[in-house]
């Protein structure tokens, strides 16, 4: 059974997935960030593979991606850094990224290597449904990786069901159509999340985009299985040098 599946079997509420860009703030921060997240209460770690043209991301993650690339982060370097992660990291780890760098690395090879180092799932926002079904889904499944599709308030019901049926691990519910790191009115989001809750989905769902503190985490957790925080954590990391202290303070402020 996948680590994600196990996680949601024991915890259905307030599951917290925290995103960080690989190679940020320093090239070799990746594992330290992951350990700090695990120690301080994150349930899932999402590692972003930096790309020069991240279409779905707002300014904060654009900047962290740029810095990570300047630091020398590549998919190859990342797999090197993750090669021994399972000696210390026991919570689920998912990789998030854009298709182009993965295609250059080789899609099949990427999936194989991800499995080998102990990655549990993939979030690839610009891999469309059609291409997933016809071309890329096979390698993902063969390597027993969970694939997490995004759904939005504009996703039609029929498509929602289809994306749910092809996803495993969890579904990524985008709080409203926007790039990452945009402020939200969570009273409006609630209606959408209640709709998702009653949609009879086979997967649990986590809410992302605009979740930045305890108030927003509490607000969406009331109508979901939990949330994904990205830009707010990157922002916190950008304001100091000590990854461990910052992560502890940040997660404390969100969870307690």
């Amino acid at each position: 059974m996948s680590r994600l599946k196990k996680l949601f079997e024991v915890q259905q509420h307030r599951v917290l997935n925290v995103y960080c860009t690989a190679g940020y703030p320093q090239l070799n921060s990746t594992l330290l960030v992951m350990k700090s997240l695990q120690e301080n209460g994150a349930n899932i770690i999402e590692i972003g593979m930096p790309y020069s043209d991240p279409l779905a991301d707002g300014e904060v993650i654009q900047v962290s991606s740029h810095i990570a690339l300047e630091n020398g982060m590549t998919i190859e370097v990342l797999f090197d850094q993750l090669s021994k992660m399972r000696e210390t990291i026991h919570i689920p780890v998912v990789l998030m990224g854009y298709m182009n760098p993965i295609l250059q690395y080789g899609f099949d090879q990427f999936c194989k290597k991800a499995k080998e180092v102990g990655v549990d799932g993939l979030i690839l926002p610009d891999l469309p449904l059609y291409e997933f079904e016809h071309l890329y889904g096979k390698a993902i499944k063969e390597n027993e990786l969970d694939f997490i599709f995004l759904v939005t308030p504009e996703t039609p019901t029929e498509r929602l069901q289809k994306l749910d049926s092809l996803s495993s691990g969890f579904l990524y519910a985008v709080s409203s159509s926007a790039t990452t790191g945009t402020d939200k009115d969570f009273s409006k989001v609630a209606t959408y999340l209640q709709k998702l809750q009653s949609a009879g989905l086979k997967n649990p769902f986590l809410v992302g985009f605009g979740i930045k503190d305890k108030a927003s985490f509490d607000a969406v957790s009331a109508y979901s299985n939990g949330a994904i925080i990205g830009s707010a954590y990157i922002n916190a990391l950008s304001k100091g040098d000590n990854v461990e202290t910052i992560t502890k303070q940040f997660l404390n402020s969100v969870l307690n």
Binding site: L55, A56, D126, L127, Y130, E131, T152, T155, V174
Partner: peptide, 11 residues
């Protein structure tokens, strides 16, 4: 070709 876009643009 194709349409490699995030779900937010799908509709």
């Amino acid at each position: 070709g194709g349409a490699y876009i995030p779900e937010m643009l799908y509709e």
